[in-house]
Design a protein around this nucleic acid. Structure first.
Lengths: 227, 227
DNA sequence: CGAAGTATTGACTACCTTCAAAAATTGTGG
DNA sequence: CCACAATTTTTGAAGGTAGTCAATACTTCG
């Protein structure tokens, strides 16, 4: 029942390799692309590959039987998705926008320690840091209010991909409102209302629906930590 | 500012080693104990050790500045706690009841791959499966109702430590209501009300406050998946 | 037995959701 | 380039789930 959409071979190989895989040799990986909206893998598929995001953004998610969805993470350049301990993927993964990928041919369930100790080392460090990152998200989902959640989310993006521009920090919001809602455990209406509130309070500007300018970073940080 | 409570040297060494560490030699680890309520490590401490639970239960948690707490996991026998990618613990860890521990002298941030490939392999597999487990908890925190959360929580314990006894499945609930509340992102009142509801509906019995008998496992599973 | 801590129950409130409609944005064909 | 449809987002009103506050009951421990 699980079908993985094929993703085309990546034609332009003149990409600068990110730090993560610098030491890797070409035979252990190849390049690929995925178009916006396309599925890279499904929960239950054989976890053959680990994907490294080179450009663009992906989302990993899980579904309940009745259709409720929880987005587990947004994968930005430098991130790895598809880590598995038992050779099956445990989440779906889709491209939020067009993405360029490096596809690693080994997963954590393969005996890569002896043959590729460097890769294994990085994989272990990635897995451990992933655990730590997810713990941060736990307290967000379990204990923060809607305003705190949205403010925290914007700050995460700001710290990661924000660009300073005359007193403001700007970044794209490639995912749609329902993605944000399913990431934060809220509804699209609450996301919309909260963003509007932040805009009315002068903390952010929303020049386009997928673009954010943060005018008041300290104010946003304050909102992220208390209601 | 972070202080780790000392934990006494473990006197009784005739413990059966769990599967995880069978291959480990003694020089890379030692035994220890912690009494109920005692702190094993704090967020920010140097992450020197990884702790393996041999007996008893521990909780790992994070605090917000205003005191709100999120419990990240309950560690049962066979579990590891204290994994770190950067040599600092990212959560607090306390003993829920008296625990016996095996203390491993290496963490993920140490270069243990070359010298101890077997341990590194298990560490990687543990970290990867930990990521998968946490993903399950994500959908619980983000998308499930109070009843679904409590039912899911009881089922997890049932599957892990439940003992069949004439048509019922029984287990201890060593943690207090506030621990459960902070694990599920609810309040103690909601935990109490939900448990009472499950009892009134004949799904469970609560002979003591820290003991659960599940009378209707399929009913509990149904409640865990839809409101 | 009394005190302290934990758990249960009740009444009320608030935050977020749900349902519904309008507005804005995006995409497509003439 | 514009018109129109489809999708996404915003806004509004009403309702429900879980939270807060408060009192009572139960356990544990000295």
């Amino acid at each position: 029942m699980y079908v993985t959409s094929p993703i085309g071979i990546f034609e332009h190989s003149e990409i600068r390799l990110p730090h993560f895989v610098e030491a890797e040799t070409a035979k252990h990986s190849h390049f690929s692309t995925a178009e916006a909206g396309h599925r890279m893998f499904c929960e239950g598929d054989d976890a053959i590959y680990i994907y490294e995001i080179l450009e663009g953004v992906v989302r990993t998610s899980k579904l309940l039987f009745d259709g409720r969805r929880q987005i587990l993470s947004f994968g930005y350049p430098g991130d790895l998705v598809g880590l598995s301990h038992d050779c099956f993927y445990h989440s779906d993964c889709e491209a939020v926008c067009d993405v360029k990928l490096r596809v690693h041919h080994k997963n954590a369930c393969h005996a890569s320690i002896e043959s590729e100790p460097e890769f294994a080392k990085k994989l272990l460090k990635f897995a451990a840091s992933e655990v730590n990152n997810m713990q941060e998200h736990f307290i967000m989902l379990g204990r923060k209010s809607a305003t705190e959640k949205v403010a925290s989310f914007l700050l995460t993006l700001l710290d990661r991909v924000g660009e300073p521009k005359n007193c403001k920090t700007c970044f794209d919001l490639p995912m749609c409102r329902s993605d944000i809602a399913d990431f934060l455990g809220l509804t699209i209406e609450t996301i919309s209302r909260t963003l509007t509130k932040l805009r009315e309070d002068g903390v952010i500007e929303l020049p386009k629906k997928h673009r954010v300018h943060v005018c008041n970073v300290p104010g946003l940080r304050a909102l992220a930590e208390r209601a």
